[in-house]
Design a protein around this nucleic acid. Structure first.
Lengths: 114, 114
DNA sequence: CAGTTATATAACTTATTAGTTAAGTATACG
DNA sequence: CGTATACTTAACTAATAAGTTATATAACTG
C-alpha cells in the first residue's frame, strides 16, 4: 500500500490512534504518557505508534530512555486538501436539503412527492 | 467497529473506493459504469460498494435491473469537521516553518541551530 | 556492575480484508 | 416461458491487522 493518502486514512481509521493524535495536538508526549489512558498493553501502543510514524503523522525523538512523540502536520493537511474536492458537492447537497425544508414549511405540495 | 468516523476512514483508506467516489461526485452511476475503469472483477466492485454503503458514503436506488449509486455528503462533512480540530495546529506549524525559512534567508544564525 | 525504568521486538493467535470463481436473484425482452 | 443483462451472494484463499505474552535493548541510578 504505497500511496500516502491510503496510509494516512488507514492509520486514522482506528479510535485508539485518533485518541493518541488528540493528545499530541496539545504537545509532545512520551510513549508511557500516551499509553496511560488505555487499557491495552504497552506493546500494543508501540505498534500503534509505529503505524502513525510510518504514515508520517508523528515523529519521534530521543531523550535518554524516553522517545518523545510529536504530531506532524503534513499528512493531515494533505487529507484536508483531498477533502476539499468534495466541499462543493456537499455544499450543493446542503442547499438542496435547505430548499426542500423551506418548501415543506410553506406547504409546497411538490416537496413531499419528489 | 461501531463508531462512524472509523467506518468512514477505513472505507476511504482504499484507492479503488476513493476512485469510485471521485466518479460519483460527478453524478449517479450504475455498478457496471463504476466497475468499467478497473481491472478487478465485478463482484469485487460490489463488495467495495457495500463497504461504501455501510459507511453511509453512498446510497443505492433501483431502476429495472440497475442499481444506481449516488454519493452522500454527511460522512465526508463529518470527517471535515473532525479534521478542523487540527487546523489550528497545522497553521501554527506552518507559521513556525515560515518564520524559520525567513530567518534562514536573512542569515539569522539562530535559524540553523534550533 | 546490578538493578530499574522506558520502550521495542519476536512469536504467536484471532479476526478482518481484498481478491478470486461459481452460482443465485431480479428484471427486461422476444 | 426462455434467455440475456445487471448485479449480488457464497465459498474459498492469501495477506494484513490488532491484540497478547515473553524477551531484548538502551539509558539512568546507586
Amino acid at each position: 500500500m504505497p500511496d500516502p493518502l491510503s496510509m494516512t486514512l488507514s492509520a486514522l481509521a482506528d479510535p485508539t490512534r485518533r485518541a493518541i493524535l488528540a493528545r499530541l495536538v496539545q504537545g509532545e508526549a512520551t510513549v508511557g504518557e500516551l499509553a496511560a489512558p488505555f487499557s491495552i498493553s504497552q506493546p500494543a501502543i508501540s505498534k500503534h505508534l509505529k503505524v502513525l510514524e510510518r504514515a508520517g503523522l508523528i515523529s519521534r525523538g530521543r531523550e535518554a530512555q524516553w522517545r518523545p512523540c510529536r504530531l506532524e502536520a503534513a499528512p493531515l493537511q494533505d487529507l484536508a486538501g483531498w477533502l476539499e474536492n468534495y466541499r462543493r458537492f456537499w455544499e450543493e447537497s446542503f442547499d438542496r436539503l435547505d430548499a426542500y425544508l423551506k418548501d415543506l414549511q410553506k406547504g409546497d405540495p411538490d416537496a413531499s412527492s419528489s
